[in-house]
Design a protein around this nucleic acid. Sequence first.
DNA 1: TTGTACGCGTTATCAC
DNA 2: GTGATAACGCGTACAA
Lengths: 334, 334
Amino acid sequence: MGGAVNRKPATVFDVARESGVSTATVSRVFTGKTDRVAPETLERVRHAARQLGYTPSEIGRSLRLATTRIVVLIVPDATNDFCADVAISLEQALKTAGLSMVLCNTGEDADRQDELIDDAEGLRPHAVILLGAIDTPRLRALARSKTRVVFVNRRPSPGVKAPFVGIDNEAAGRVVARHFLDRGYARFAIIHGSRRYSASRGRLTGFLACLAESGVPADSVTQIESELTMEAGYRHGRELLSRASPPRAVFCGNDMIAYGIHRAATERGVGVPADLAICGFDDNRVNEWLAPWLTTVRIPALDFGPAVLSLLQGGEAAEGEVILPFSLTLRHST
Amino acid sequence: MGGAVNRKPATVFDVARESGVSTATVSRVFTGKTDRVAPETLERVRHAARQLGYTPSEIGRSLRLATTRIVVLIVPDATNDFCADVAISLEQALKTAGLSMVLCNTGEDADRQDELIDDAEGLRPHAVILLGAIDTPRLRALARSKTRVVFVNRRPSPGVKAPFVGIDNEAAGRVVARHFLDRGYARFAIIHGSRRYSASRGRLTGFLACLAESGVPADSVTQIESELTMEAGYRHGRELLSRASPPRAVFCGNDMIAYGIHRAATERGVGVPADLAICGFDDNRVNEWLAPWLTTVRIPALDFGPAVLSLLQGGEAAEGEVILPFSLTLRHST
DNA sequence: TTGTACGCGTTATCAC
DNA sequence: GTGATAACGCGTACAA
């Protein structure tokens, strides 16, 4: 049995002493500069390290290099399947680059986001990734700082230059509107996320613009700003369907909303799509299995992680952006 | 405009110089020892810090205190809703204690788990939380080390003492078997997770024991060890239903499996529960909305995070354990 | 109430 | 190919 139990972790000094070399050599071994170390020395050091149960301290390393290998991902709502998928794909991508991911949840709360940004900066992270960021002074300060920042799915406010990964939301909104028009529907509703999010704004803008250009009168389109949860969708669905003249087709800010509306419709005996057409957004993984009826805009959530990583690796002052493709998945709800 | 742009982050020294005090005083201000600082000095320091955009470096702090405020959560499969819920609830709970969560995914791969454990120890984390851990020598070494470890949903191998959060899986298996028997079903199948997981083993043991005690012959029970995914459930479902004498009731290792089986049954025109009864496990959040037909064992996934935190805070050498309650959610699939 | 001085573990630089 | 050494940012014991 090694004696590595019940003592504080071994350090480079311990390994150096044990293997009869200097700390510099030990460091060289563990930073991969093995070509500058004699093979025999290399083996001696490795052996001693194993013996002592030595694992290099990221803390010491980070202090010396003035940065950690941690990437902080801040999401608005981790219970949302889309956020979860982005987190999963990002964690996988980061691991290939030797980076760890800290996950934080704002709960869509601006103050909480700002606190999390403070905490994140305290970690001196390799980068901060913001999914669905909320525009606050603190956020702008972060974007101005030396900290690497990547915005996902929400563009930084004009004037803030920073890498971006997302889709063309306005085009997506237009595609849905066009689809509704092609089907011949006349009265519409859109239940969208907060206007503070450029993603929500973009979809709303594209949807409304396409309808307007096709001569749909503005009073035929109900707009509802909503949380993006199943509960909210259910609530709004009940309200919409109890109106004297309910909408014929509804475009949802995400699939969660769509699930809620569908339930509201089912409970009232409203046929989908016979009486009400529903279009979601995101195309969550479970759809194929549990909601094979849902027409929705498919976003390649699992491609977001690799895209973010490519931006992180793309040179120092990268201001690049990655626009990922979307597509309309046609099923039976429209 | 403050001049905090384009320079390296401010340190205690900068703040000390700017506010005309010593670094010790600055440190005292930011570690909450404000009662040992004159109110006027306090304000001066805070002002200077704001001016400089100073955020205390967790790195320096961690080095000094020989530990970070990071908790590493290692999960087998983040795409699983149960894992996701545990992660979410843990992140929330940890934040209240000023801790950050690093999330890693083993993909059910033992080697990868061991690598992640190495990485985790390098971070000198406050604690490592293992959900569905795989028993390896490396894991045992971790449990023996000074690193705080909490096992979730899987008991450490006998001889390894460590805090545990989970449910009574054997009792859960029995409850499902009893339910099947009460409904009068005769031929059974259980599609369970890897026997390497004590959680899977426990459910299997309880299920089989209860059936055996009730006089069900062993050859009336099909056992299938499987991945816990929708795809695997679908595959096994097709296979089971194509048999000459298919099972009448199937107990699934988790809800994902159940979704897959349900789809396989639907595609073949097999009625649920008329021809096949299905019982899941976990009761994912989406069930109420998208699978309101699924009878399943409800696990309070969102209570796991707080439970883990309570163990972390429960004294130094806590070897406590938290057994959370489960219940059978009866719906229409049985 | 405040300041001085040290050490935490690592790596880059320089000298040999 | 190897070693000695100086930082990196912070918290605290001790001194004033």
